[in-house]
Nucleic acid binder design. Structure first.
Lengths: 128, 128
DNA sequence: CGTAGTCGATTACACGCGTAAACGAAGGAG
DNA sequence: CTCCTTCGTTTACGCGTGTAATCGACTACG
């Protein structure tokens, strides 16, 4: 067996859009997934089917047969995905440290007042 | 002319490694760039030359002739690159808001005490 | 002056991705 | 039972990327 282990194969951009749909609601059929993204990304059902198959091959989705069709559900947690992607960026661009990333966001005024307030609150919690 | 405008064409992962070298020190010749990355990434000089050419084609590097060879220098600022890449991630994964990213880093214990201290200091400045 | 080394430019090639059409099996309608 | 629809699977194809080898020009050494 070639891919039975769950080595996290990289999820591409288009695939990620499909994952987001299923993280929001699952299980769903291919058509239902399409209903929720095909408009937004201007895709055909065929494209969604391809992406679903690739995600299954990557062990990112699980399938349950339902009659002749499949119900798709995430096989990896969104927080895991988000975590590895965030860390990848922080490693590549900021030497693995989060503070420089934060500094950069601050400098480029990408932080809203709300962001600042929330981060401050989180910091308080962390310090306890 | 096809590519005279500086529409920021995407810089790939391997290309980014080359950019980092030139952001650290420039201008450099192809061989000098190789000296600084070929070991680390296990590349041949030919690979570096390809990447340099592609970066020039993407208007990410500028060249000055020096005899028969070129001296390469960055044509885009590292902070710009880092900015767009960071924003891209925050948009894709956190709906464009920085606070959830921070929350995630905090939760996954990716924040060192030093990070926390520095971020706190930055927050103080921001609040003034 | 000729020849070996060194440049950038050109060409190569496999693989992943975005995007989809074609195909074959199965189930529902009549 | 037969045909249309609907699935998942297979195949397609162009582009970017990672990774290089080759080529033609130029230079420096002898």
């Amino acid at each position: 067996m070639a891919h039975s282990n769950s080595q996290p194969e990289r999820i591409s951009d288009a695939e990620h859009a499909v994952m987001e749909v299923l993280w929001t609601k699952s299980p769903l059929t291919a058509s239902e997934v399409c209903e929720r993204v095909c408009g937004e990304r201007d895709w055909s059902l065929a494209t969604v089917k391809t992406l679903l198959s690739r995600l299954v091959a990557k062990n990112a989705l699980a399938t349950k047969p339902d009659g002749k069709r499949f119900l798709y559900s995430p096989a990896i947690a969104r927080s895991d995905y988000v975590g590895t992607e965030s860390r990848r960026l922080v490693d590549r661009l900021f030497g693995g440290r989060a503070a420089p990333l934060f500094a950069h966001l601050a400098q480029s005024e990408s932080l809203t007042n709300q962001d600042i307030a929330e981060i401050e609150a989180l910091l308080q919690e962390l310090k306890q």
